[in-house]
Amino acid sequence: MDTAEQAYDMTNIEKAETVPPRPDPGPEPAVVQFAPEAEPAEQEVAEERAEYDTIGDVTAKDAVMTVRDCNVFYGDNHALQHVNLDVGRNEVVALIGPSGCGKSTFIRCLNRMNDTIETARVTGEIRLHGDDINSRETDVVLLRARVGMVFQKPNPFPKSVYDNVAYGPKLHGLASNRTELDEIVERSLLRAGLWDEVKDRLDDPGTGLSGGQQQRLCIARTIAVDPEVILMDEPCSALDPIATAKIEDLIDELAQNYAIAIVTHSMQQAARVSQRTAYFHLGKLIEVDSTDKVFTNPGHRLTEDYVTGRFG
């Protein structure tokens, strides 16, 4: 199953990264019966209901980020619809769902990475420790320093390993001299579990590392600026199982200090690393609950079908 999941992930890398989610063929019927393409009659019935309600508890105790009624449009395409979700301190939230369901879109809202997509429009209220991140006063640069992001494909800069990690701290002036910078780099690489592998070749190009090492380098780069929240967009989808296992261990450790939201296509991964799981379907957040509950006793038929592997 694991390898099959990997293969599945690989096929979706490109799609999920470059193409905005497919147009929504219509709201899902809230009725228990699942139909991938809702028929018109059912659709109308469904629209009568409060279709955007999410099953389960969207709040987290000790929430770092709170998202209320978040919508994203890519041009005319309503890619993310009325999503409410919290990300709590010291917890890992896994976002699962089929391709094009909006989970990557959602995670990109949390540090306003959707700003870099010209056609994207975000509405709703997203707060980081009570500050509205979409307000005019928020400096997106500071926001992204507080909410770090690790991407699907490892994307180290064309610089040395050292400079890759030192990049963020230098930008934000976190170190006043070279010794401090050295310390930050070492600490970040240590926490990312990469120090022993690269300590003798800090001056080699970061692009020369293996895929798994590159991804851990990207994680080290992210934690070097000491964020409060780390967003991970399918961080293991381009990696082999051994590298994946290392990253998962790392996520476990990082959860002690950071709030983490991770998008994943692997349900095993979600089950292994997360405390809470959110299931997205066609731009809507269907269900949020503790990971145990979602995987063993899901409240929605769609969730059950997905986690039992009936589609996806």
Binding site: M113, L143, A145, F151, T222
Partner: peptide, 9 residues
Amino acid sequence: RDGSYGLGA
């Protein structure tokens, strides 16, 4: 670019 923006550059 995303990697750099994601670090707050």
